[in-house]
Amino acid sequence: MSQFTSGFWDVFIAVVTIVSIVACALFLKSQSIRRKPGPADTTGHTWDEDLAEYNNPLPRWWSWMFYITIVFSLGYLVLYPGLGSWSGTLGWSQISQLDDEQQLAAKRYGPLYDKFAATEVDVLVKNPEALAVGQKLFLNTCAQCHASDGAGSRGFPNLADRDWQWGGEAKTIKDTITGGRTATMPSFGALGEQGVKDTAHYVRSLSGLSHDSIRKARGEGLFKANCMACHGAEGKGNPAMGAPNLTDRTWLYGSAEPVVIETITRGRSGQMPAHKDLLTEAKIHLLTAYVLSLSQQK
């Protein structure tokens, strides 16, 4: 309601509403009695030469139905927000309704999650009932980025392999879901076009991909000077800071030479959002088990 910056509109709405209701009641009253004694008047309209229309009041039961709607509307306006800024004696709002429903859901499904929360993750991984619930949570919450099968997509890590950017322990995974992760690969465009290309060839050589051996030799020095801090001397990465292992066959953004060049030139930034405010601890516990189960299937 931020567009209503003054109290005027609240008052305006309340007045229009009240006046309309009162006017309806008065109009109804005027239509349910006849003004003149004697037999009914006609409206004075004539159709097809001799068809006239009686000017009769409304049937009584009909009038009463209208009066009931008026009483209802007054009761409604007292109980619910409707008159300007009046919030209603029941205190109802869309948010409060959502809260109520969520509380109800928490009460209804709480015991189920509590049962799972009390069980260790490595036991849950083998519990089909827990995994079925975990799968539903995963499809609702995680599948948008990590895909329905958990195998990820470009820029979103594959959770179904055994390669973990941040570590594959149950506790680490739980931390990742709870607090989120921010992975930043800084830009090394300063190395210059040739420098970047040389580095890219060295990086590709680490996982046995085709490369130019002269460029690789030149790139090795550049790698040691610029990349080692995060990716390690051997390029095996560092899960503590989310630096990917460059010697395996897993490529988050792609392994083709132009892609690697782009990664080095512009840097990359990955963001796993924190879920502690979106999911309960018990749900995160269950999701951890499900995510772990993805890579243990094969």
Partner: peptide, 16 residues
């Protein structure tokens, strides 16, 4: 009908 004439206002709804 005569009695009706005396009433200033008369409900015209035909009572069932």
């Amino acid at each position: 009908m005569k009695q009706d004439m005396n009433l200033a206002e008369l409900s015209l709804y035909e009572v069932r």
